[in-house]
């Protein structure tokens, strides 16, 4: 399988290890700034919603985490597919690093969605199609992580979990639309779907800031975790023993 040259260069673990080393802080600090700005804007500057009052502010944390939970699963499946096709150890490292972060954001989306449901529906848990899909997504993440760690040989765990992620990502839309059909046949006339209300620009820009902030945060976090995964997978490589020699504070 032919690979463009720059991908080869980026794909070489030591090269990627050095890049992620200095790039991670450059992603994390702007992310923290954006998130701080987004929180402030979302809580204070944005006007209250005429229907839900201030309750709607929860979308500022719920929507970014829900968006990231799906994005990260897609990225994880893509990395796993690259790993399986081109046998690139780095791709497996990216998939293994992305999984826990994705699981955390899915959990966050679930919790914030449930808390948002309390004022809206009066109960913490409502089998709303989106929340149900998030719950299933969490199971897919947990399945990936537990399968990967149930093999002694890391390469075997990577390949098995990677295949599961690819099968999972193909199934995700099917599961999502089945859940939507399933909830639609119970549709009472007065359903209150978990919809972001019609959103004006004053409400929208904090949301976009937070989505960008969360994404940069994920990217920085991912690079850090990928460093750990790369070190573990390349533990026998010469470049690892080089930078790990006592007295050298490298990497």
């Amino acid at each position: 399988m032919y690979l463009p040259n720059w991908m080869h260069k980026l794909a070489s673990p030591p090269h990627f290890f050095r890049i992620s080393g200095w790039l991670a802080p450059w992603l994390l600090w702007p992310a923290v700034a954006l998130i701080a700005l987004g929180f402030y804007a979302g809580l204070v500057l944005a006007p209250a919603d005429y229907q839900q009052g201030d309750g709607f502010r929860i979308i500022y944390v719920h929507v970014p985490s829900a968006y990231l939970s799906t994005l990260i699963y897609g990225l994880m499946a893509a990395a796993a597919a690259v790993g399986l096709i081109w046998r690139m150890k780095l791709a497996y490292a990216v998939a293994a690093a992305a999984a826990p972060i994705g699981a955390w954001f899915t959990f966050l989306a679930l919790v914030t969605g449930a808390i948002w449901g309390k004022p809206m529906w009066g109960t913490f848990w409502e089998w709303d199609p989106r929340l149900t899909s998030e719950l299933i997504l969490l199971f897919l993440y947990l399945g990936f992580m537990s399968l990967r760690t149930s093999f002694e040989e890391p390469t075997k765990g990577d390949r098995a979990a990677g295949l599961l992620a690819v099968v999972g990502v193909v199934n995700l839309p099917i599961i999502h639309y089945s859940v939507i059909w399933w909830s639609s046949i119970h549709q009472g006339p007065t359903i209150k779907k978990l919809d972001a209300p019609s959103i004006t620009w004053e409400m929208a820009w904090p949301l976009l800031t937070l989505i960008l902030g969360f994404t940069l945060f994920f990217a920085g976090l991912l690079l850090q975790r990928v460093q750990a995964e790369v070190l573990e997978r390349e533990r026998n490589a010469r470049w690892v023993t080089e930078i790990m020699r006592p007295g050298i504070e490298g990497g």
């Binding site: 299933i136 399945g143 537990s146 399968l147 149930s150 059909w181």
Partner: peptide, 27 residues
């Protein structure tokens, strides 16, 4: 096939397979 080589994989197999079988269960 994925869990064939794993010792006592009962629970793991359910965790992997059941989410994928949900559409069939639903319909």
């Amino acid at each position: 096939a994925l869990t064939a080589g794993v010792r006592q994989s009962g629970g793991l197999l359910a965790l992997l397979v059941l989410p994928l079988c949900l559409p069939v269960l639903i319909f």
